[in-house]
Write a protein that binds this DNA or RNA. Structure first.
Lengths: 223, 223, 223, 223
DNA sequence: GATGAATGAGCTTTCATTCAT
DNA sequence: AATGAATGAAAGCTCATTCAT
């Protein structure tokens, strides 16, 4: 019972934050959407910001968890890279609700100075930790792929990660806008998955040969 | 004098919206940053939302204007496509200030139901019009390139636009975070430009041959 | 508890609007007078204007209700006409608070263009409806009295209504000023009641004879 | 030239105060209506309140001046009493503008605590002085008439003044509403003048006999 | 655990007033 | 004398948060 209410509030918060943006979403409407009294929100969550942090943390933890499961048996770097984006696709396609997440993540976190309590700063640290984990998961796959000659070595791993991540994010965001604000995207979920697959192909080297093009130099001085 | 103050307010708003997000920025701090009194903000801008819309509109109009100039003499579709992203690069590199724009655009517009006045809805309509113009500029270049066999026909123009746009957006956003919130991006502006160039290459067909791969069918039913 | 606070706010608003005028009264002082926090005013009333409309509506509804009760058993038009002004006298004499009402009604409604919300326009419509009801109650009594030869037919009903209403309003207003701003009126509540009674006498025809003086012609063209 | 601008501002203020109420009328719209710059209003008038006081003072002074002229040759109290209300009728009928005055006077003065400067308190004192003069003019006519057996002695002079004044005020206010807010009054200016005349008749005693009815006792204790 | 009435800090916005020109 | 850009106090209003029940 207790856990159900907490989950209902969290779900309602995801929806509200996505639809109106964090600041314009009100505790009152979240409570109403969740079917509980206003005061109960503050029983389960320290404050409104805690609710936002919880929503974001839940998403990244879920992604990391699903990635662990999915990548478990895979060894080929390209195969593993596909796996990561399959996780995104699966999560975001699973339900209307999950598509909201893209919206919320896009808005980003408020400045960390706002965090007043210790518990809050801890939760923020967890988010950064899980984010780094996700980034490092992807970057290490790419790095490994480049070393093994499976992935194009001419771009830095973090750049490739941003390209793949940014492209998916924007495409899924377009789909979310289509559903929540009736702005036609001009493409479907299948188109998005095909596009990601296409992009990964472009970064992939045929199994046989080793690319010889100019390679980015990881030891070069960073700007 | 008059125009200077208006510009100072606009600049301060760009900075504040980027740093804190639209919702968290207050009129008071925008005024302070601009070095004017709180009330003057409302002399030049109807209200806070008007300020946001003005910032966004100014950016897209600037982009479209610069595109018109840059694309004037170019005929090759790939050349023209590069031109569009050179415009982004030029704008966002020009000054610290411009990088803020990426931040603001990323946050997106608040729900249009908030728009109360007629003037506000008109400004929003202008934004949509300029956005459509930008989208159509890019899409038509890609469409043209696909017809002329210069650009890979296996993805829809709007998908290619989202990939290129999303990737740039996210990469520039990373740079902005690095400067404004001290979160290391791990790459430089030159890396971003190189990456975009690399991506466009991937969508380009060599001048000689015509690709024969499976083509997306523009007549197929859209989801 | 809930209803008590609402009533306390309403009472405080009546007092504040009467003492300072609607425009000068502030939500803060109304809240302080009611012994509640500023925010609670907005829990029970949409906004300041809603508070004014609620005060006015309550008064007219009370008048109409009391009239219904008082006029129930009366048939003679003059008797009924006296009844209406007895209602005013009773209400305004009942308590210090009620005398405020005269003050507020005198100030009148602000321009209706100010009404933003639907709820507000509905409340305004209710006020007009109840006002019309009160006017029509009086006018029909006078019209009936004129037909039955009990009331002087040489003035239009609406003119007689304005004379009796205007005279009472101004006299009671004088009393209110005496109490709230220490401006001596020079007469008492009893004087007012005697004066109204005197006036009604002047409009009354003796039961025996029928007046033969010139009559206003209801069919004549109105300016 | 100087005096013309001052008058234009005053006229614009009368219109604005009447249409929107003192607080909701803005200096900006008054200036625009007068065809001058915002700053000039404060050259001719100390502040907004000074503008209101000036408008009110001008009206009462005008009334008193016109009364002096009109009553100069009249000796019969009833004739003199009619004269006073002819002055009102003349003034308010003269122009659309003058009808606004009724609106403004009805709203009344703000609490005197608001008056900050000495000049302001002086102007307020002038208003009270002119008001008293007007009241005393009327009261003394009635008192004289009662002593001479020309006016019904059963009501106090101040009560009769309130009745006549209140009735006119409300009737003219009804006409103003008809013109400015399109609320039908149901009567014309001629009806109002006829009604006042009718009322004065009712308070008049035939020249021949002396009324013998109960008389109010001016020595009785006031409430 | 659950409620929702009550609080009050903090925001946007208005506009009388000032003052450099 | 006349302007209108600039100021900032003061108001209405919102809503996260608290707490008695």
């Amino acid at each position: 019972m207790k856990e159900e209410k907490r989950q209902a509030i969290l779900d309602a918060a995801i929806k509200a934050f996505a639809k109106k943006g964090y600041q314009y979403a009100t505790i009152e409407e979240i409570a109403k959407e969740a079917g509980v009294a206003k005061g109960l929100v503050h029983v389960y969550f320290e404050n409104k910001l805690d609710l936002l942090l919880s929503v974001i943390l839940l998403f990244i933890e879920t992604v990391n968890q699903k990635n662990r499961e999915r990548l478990a048996g895979r060894t080929d770097p390209v195969d593993r890279l596909r796996g990561v984006f399959e996780t995104f696709a699966e999560l975001l396609s699973q339900s209307q609700k999950n598509l909201y997440w893209g919206h919320i993540l896009r808005e980003g976190l408020p400045q960390s100075e706002i965090m007043k309590s210790k518990r809050q700063r801890q939760k923020l640290a967890q988010i950064y930790q899980q984010s780094s984990l996700l980034q490092e998961t992807i970057d290490s796959i790419i790095r490994d792929g480049q070393q093994k000659g499976r992935i194009d070595p001419s771009l830095q791993p973090q750049i490739i990660r941003q390209i793949l991540g940014g492209a998916s994010q924007v495409m899924y965001y377009g789909l979310a806008l289509e559903r929540h604000r009736k702005q036609p995207a001009g493409y479907t979920e299948q188109d998005v998955q095909r596009a990601i697959s296409f992009l990964i192909d472009k970064f992939t080297c045929s199994l046989g040969g080793r690319r010889t093009g100019k390679r980015y130099d990881p030891r070069a001085k960073k700007g």
